[in-house]
């Protein structure tokens, strides 16, 4: 464990807490893409298949449980909670996310570390996570104004993988034969997808103005 990875995990945790706060405090999920939340639940469920077979550390196991439980709770809340579900922007959250699932799975069958069930699903979860934010970014552009908590949620979600890139650089220089090409290249693509969001987020922070994404 290094400071970059710990900072990344904490930033990821903060993004989830901000989202839970937004849904709980405002009893609304307007501006949040249910499709992105479903993709993230799938990412965690397929990435942590080794939850009960491999033990890395108490921290690792607890964080996996938190990520799985929170992502499923958010999907449940947006689909089933009688108050929250009414505020879901169903008519603009129309990204065809099944294509993202299919593309990630096909790529995972072709490019993986080992041709085993667990490794193919691990690679699938890595590729899917890189693309999972797309429905959310599209929804933000369509819905124009972005409320603060939603903006902060997306910001922290994007920042956490940037910390992981620093973590991979650090591990590359400090550990022999450290190679995580799949996770690293996918993480670079994932962070790059946030580039324009980060730009507009920075502009809104500098001008102390509301976050506006161009349509």
């Amino acid at each position: 464990m290094n400071i970059f990875r710990f900072a990344g995990d904490m930033t990821h945790l903060i993004s989830i807490l901000v989202l839970l706060l937004k849904i709980y405090a405002t009893k609304s999920c307007s501006g949040i893409s249910l499709k992105t939340q479903e993709l993230y639940a799938l990412v965690f469920l397929t990435r942590y298949l080794d939850l009960f077979t491999d033990f890395i550390s108490v921290y690792n196991t607890i964080m996996k449980l938190v990520f799985i439980a929170s992502s499923l709770a958010i999907v449940w809340c947006m689909r089933m909670h009688r108050v929250v579900r009414r505020s879901y922007d169903k008519e603009i959250d129309t990204f065809r996310h099944y294509f993202l699932i299919l593309a990630s799975f096909l790529l995972a069958v072709l490019v993986h570390e080992k041709f085993t069930f667990q490794e193919i699903f691990w690679a699938f979860s890595i590729y899917l996570e890189a693309l999972a934010i797309l429905p959310q970014l599209v929804l933000l552009q369509r819905s124009g104004n972005v409320d603060n908590l939603t903006g902060q949620y997306v910001f922290f979600l994007g920042a956490y993988r940037a910390f992981y890139i620093l973590n991979w650089i650090y591990r590359y220089f400090t550990e022999q034969h450290f190679s995580r090409w799949i996770a690293c290249l996918s993480g670079i693509v994932q962070t790059a997808l946030y580039a324009d969001f980060f730009y507009y987020y920075f502009i809104s922070w500098k001008n102390n103005a509301k976050l506006q994404l161009p349509a």
Partner: peptide
Amino acid sequence: LKVVDSHDEL
């Protein structure tokens, strides 16, 4: 439970 370090990251 086997302790591994293959995917030690979240």
